Simulated assay, not measured.
Amino acid sequence: MAKAPVKSEYAWSDSKMACVATYKILEGDKFMNEFEDSDIPFEKASDVEMSSLFYWPQTTGNDALLKLAASQAAKKFWYLLIKNYTVLKEEAAKESYKMLDDVEAVFASKDATLKKLAEVVDKSLKFPNE
């Protein structure tokens, strides 16, 4: 019997830097430019699926191509996140590559949302004033 997906209690909010950073990095023209804020305002972005973003290959079901696209997008996202936001690890002992693996898994999941990505970021990193 298939398990039902686990519902997350994480709330998308403009008071959470992980949500704001996720949105700004994915939307920003000088960042990843994966969508336009006029099409997807912050308030409605939480349920946007990763598979609807530009990096997601729409013309093939090739798993290797999806994995490569997701890996490249996740690495760019992670780089921009670290470079543009002063952050610390939530768990000092957790290795950065393991946090990147968690982010990569979200980028590779067809049903994952921006809210899920922000949740993973929030569990991995501390932002200023947290």
Results as ranks from 00 to 15, higher is better:
residue 28 G to E: 10
residue 130 E to S: 15
residue 63 D to W: 13
residue 45 A to I: 05
residue 56 W to M: 07
residue 90 E to M: 09
residue 90 E to G: 02
residue 127 F to S: 13
residue 33 N to L: 03
residue 108 A to T: 00
residue 104 E to M: 04
residue 16 K to A: 10
residue 99 M to N: 07
residue 79 Y to T: 03
residue 93 A to V: 02
residue 130 E to M: 12
residue 32 M to P: 15
residue 92 A to T: 10
residue 94 K to I: 06
residue 7 K to A: 12
residue 46 S to L: 00
residue 99 M to W: 01
residue 4 A to T: 08
residue 124 S to N: 09
residue 108 A to I: 00
residue 99 M to I: 12
residue 130 E to Q: 15
residue 90 E to W: 01
residue 113 T to W: 04
residue 103 V to P: 07
residue 29 D to F: 04
residue 77 F to Q: 02
residue 130 E to T: 11
residue 41 P to Y: 06
residue 8 S to C: 06
residue 102 D to Y: 00
residue 60 T to E: 10
residue 105 A to E: 10
residue 2 A to M: 14
residue 110 K to L: 02
residue 8 S to E: 06
residue 7 K to S: 10
residue 56 W to C: 08
residue 119 E to I: 00
residue 5 P to K: 09
residue 2 A to E: 15
residue 53 L to P: 11
residue 125 L to I: 04
residue 73 A to L: 01
residue 38 S to R: 13
residue 65 L to A: 11
residue 118 A to N: 01
residue 18 A to M: 03
residue 85 Y to G: 08
residue 100 L to N: 08
residue 25 I to S: 15
residue 76 K to R: 11
residue 118 A to S: 08
residue 100 L to Y: 08
residue 16 K to F: 11
residue 85 Y to A: 01
residue 24 K to E: 15
residue 3 K to Q: 11
residue 104 E to A: 05
residue 23 Y to R: 07
residue 35 F to D: 03
residue 47 D to W: 08
residue 82 I to G: 00
residue 125 L to P: 01
residue 31 F to R: 15
residue 119 E to T: 04
residue 42 F to P: 05
residue 12 W to H: 06
residue 111 D to G: 00
residue 49 E to L: 12
